[in-house]
Computed example of a mutant assay.
Amino acid sequence: MQGAVRRSPSTERSALGSVEWATAPTGPPHDHDGHGRPTRGGARIRLPDSLTVTGPVLGARPWIACARAVTRLTTTGRASRSEFWWTWLLQTVVAAVLLLAVPLLQGRTRDLQLPSGPFGPGLLGTVPLFSWNDTSGAPAGGASVVIWTVWSLLTLAPMVALAIRRLHDADHSAWWALGAVLVPVLSFVVLVLLAQRSKPVGVRFDRAHLDRPGADRPGAEGALAPSEGGR
């Protein structure tokens, strides 16, 4: 029997989502398939669903949550609780190291503060998580503060967009995020809203949900849920 033998596409379910590939025909290895897409060992390279799905990823791992935060710079759509809080926690850890740990080791113990809020401890942080003032020490500052300022500027847009998508997932308007900026006391209220469970009716904030019949049902296209539970 002559000619190349083709295998049907296969799908493998992993912790990151389903990854689909097509096995290339037998013969010499190629760096690209017939459509110019890169291949590796005869398998077409595709990103996992958890990185490309437009809806919320329930039970997202920390690295998936952070990757989606920096690659999805849009306020349209939704984000799950795990997507938001893992990214928020990373932002808080970076801030704690640069604004507290490093200055304390340098003896800069005057006016140490760690602000936070719905958008993390960045430039829009209005909720004081920690405050320390030792007048006998040097004032806060130094290279760590400069590094933090640059970091907070780079992550400001992703954190704001992520918070808005998380509000959408809990079926709340983005106006709550604006209210937290204009009225700092509302930050506590917004933090509570951000901690609420996902609601299927939040699909109304998706751009094209009306074009996808049944998209408002849990588990419909546009949302990715883990095999066991989810947040």
Results as ranks from 00 to 15, higher is better:
Asp33Gln: 07
Arg204Asn: 02
Trp176Gln: 11
Asp216Ile: 02
Arg78Ala: 00
Trp151Asn: 13
Val203Gly: 09
Leu47Ala: 15
Gly59Ile: 03
Ala22Asp: 11
Leu194Gln: 02
Leu167Tyr: 04
Gly107Ile: 13
Ser131Phe: 13
Phe130Thr: 02
Arg207Lys: 14
Trp132Asp: 09
Val127Asn: 10
Leu100Arg: 01
Val5Ile: 11
Ser80Trp: 06
Gly3Ser: 12
Gly214His: 09
Pro103Tyr: 03
Val181Arg: 01
Ala208Arg: 15
Val185Arg: 14
Leu153His: 10
Gly137Phe: 00
Gly141Asp: 10
Trp86Ala: 01
Val150Gly: 14
Gly17Glu: 09
Gln196Ile: 15
Val97Gln: 00
Leu105Asp: 01
Val70Ile: 08
Gly230Cys: 06
Pro218Asp: 14
Val183Glu: 08
Gly27Ala: 09
Pro62Val: 00
His168Gln: 04
Cys66Lys: 12
Ala140Ser: 10
Phe188Trp: 09
Thr52Lys: 11
Ala69Cys: 09
Arg13Pro: 04
Ala161Pro: 00
Glu221Asp: 15
Pro115Arg: 07
Thr39Asp: 10
Pro121Met: 04
Pro25Trp: 11
Trp63His: 00
Arg217Thr: 06
Thr74His: 05
Trp132Arg: 12
Leu73Val: 07
Val150Ile: 13
Ala140Asn: 09
Arg37Asp: 08
Pro115Trp: 07
Val19Phe: 04
Gly229Thr: 03
Leu114Asn: 01
Trp21Ile: 13
Gly122Tyr: 01
Glu20Met: 15
Trp88Leu: 05
Ala140Gln: 12
Ala177Phe: 01
Ala22Thr: 15
Ser14Leu: 10
Pro118Trp: 07
Ser173Leu: 05
Gln106Asn: 01
Ala220Ser: 11
Asp171Ser: 06
Ser198Phe: 10
Thr11His: 09
Ala161Cys: 12
Val146Leu: 14
Pro103Arg: 07
Pro226Lys: 09
Leu112Arg: 03
Met159Lys: 01
Val53Gly: 08
Ile164Asp: 01
Arg165Leu: 05
Phe205Val: 07
Thr11Trp: 11
Pro29Tyr: 08
Ala95Phe: 00
Lys199Gln: 06
Gly107Ser: 04
Pro200Gln: 12
Thr149Phe: 14
His172Met: 05
His168Tyr: 02
Ser131Met: 14
His209Glu: 12
Ile64Asp: 05
Glu83Thr: 02
Ser198Thr: 06
